[in-house]
Design a protein around this nucleic acid. Structure first.
Lengths: 194, 194
DNA sequence: CTTGTTTCATAACGCTGTTATGAAACAAGG
DNA sequence: CCTTGTTTCATAACAGCGTTATGAAACAAG
């Protein structure tokens, strides 16, 4: 029959362990300083685990990013009932809590590093709460009646840019980013108001 | 005395050649695929040149990024007389012409790769045309009278985010980015109008 | 206990940035 | 004209990376 050979250690739970460890190392040291040897050591296994469970470093990072998008989506969904302004506030809060991960997700740092992109469906899902909020505000007559998806992408871009600039530490080093962000959120709201 | 020893080849002109070659390779293959050996070979020299002229790979990339900021500043300055909308159009045009470089400059990809940041003064200079345009529009009573620098940072962030999302290829893959961008520029203008 | 099979930690490989080394290239002095 | 001295930089060596190949470890069956 099928001799069971030696017991399996590269299990699904190790997979999750590797994801968690990698996300932690990315957020602590930045993606550049994360090596497979460190990840494996921190998870108490060897580098082969990454290859048997993910396929390689780029797939591991992609999985981490996809998890990031899911966490981000949940954060957005939780803030959905607070309206567009609430989504904006939650957006920045999540980004500041996961700075390196956010850059990995949106900053193109991943694509710059290795040849991989976030899974399109997962990334698109993260936008759903915003699109829904836009559509809702349009139905209530409070927002310009342009295509909801287009308005959502534009608003997302505007908000993303503010957060991205803050994280990249480009611009005046003494800037009061919270104040800038709030003023910008108001301006975005005015800009798209019906 | 001072025996002149063998003639110097690591000159300032080779420095510029290395900068040009690196910028070209970055824009063609992305930062991940640029190696010092390739850069040196393309410039007809050896890797030592990078170390004697720049200090290492991170300083070379920093110099390329600083050059990028200067080029970007010039592009903005040239569009300054066309007003805020002109600056916005020029912004996206420059970014699309220098995709990889733009990501290196603003996307945090550089910080993710190696431990270096763009020279603060050079990056701040790139914002000067926008700040001037904001101040001008405020003086003419066409813009909200908030602190010019804050308004400029907010607008910059909004515009940057749109371009950044487009470059990162996050969001709907069939999006008409030009249309989104134009609509967003109008919304930004409305949002900050007096 | 031996055999057979599967699993995965270890070691080896090619490539990277970086550093060390020594040959190359000339000016000066015999 | 050749030796010597000095400077410069291409080459080779090194440590570390992601990845791949290998063979010992761990068990079921005979």
């Amino acid at each position: 029959m099928n001799p069971m050979a030696r017991p399996i250690v590269h299990t699904d739970s190790l997979r999750h362990e590797l994801l968690a460890v990698t996300a932690e190392l990315v957020d602590r040291d930045g993606p550049a300083r994360v090596t497979l040897r460190d990840v494996a050591a921190a998870a108490g296994t060897s580098t082969s685990a990454v290859y048997s469970l993910f396929g390689g470093k780029s797939q591991l990072l992609t999985a981490v990013v996809d998890d990031g998008f899911r966490s981000f989506h949940d954060s957005q969904a939780a803030a959905a009932e607070e309206g567009l302004q609430g989504l904006g506030v939650a957006y920045r809060a999540w980004a500041l809590e996961h700075r390196a991960l956010y850059r990995l997700m949106f900053g193109g740092a991943l694509a710059a590093y290795v040849d991989c992109q976030p899974t399109p469906d997962v990334a698109a899902d993260a936008m759903v709460p915003l699109i829904a909020a836009v559509a809702g505000a349009q139905a209530a007559g409070r927002l310009l009646p342009a295509p909801a998806e287009m308005v959502a992408v534009a608003i997302w871009g505007q908000v993303h840019g503010l957060v991205s600039l803050e994280l990249a530490e480009v611009g005046p080093p003494d800037a009061d980013w919270a104040a800038v962000y709030n003023a910008a959120l108001d301006a975005v709201a005015r800009g798209w108001a019906a």
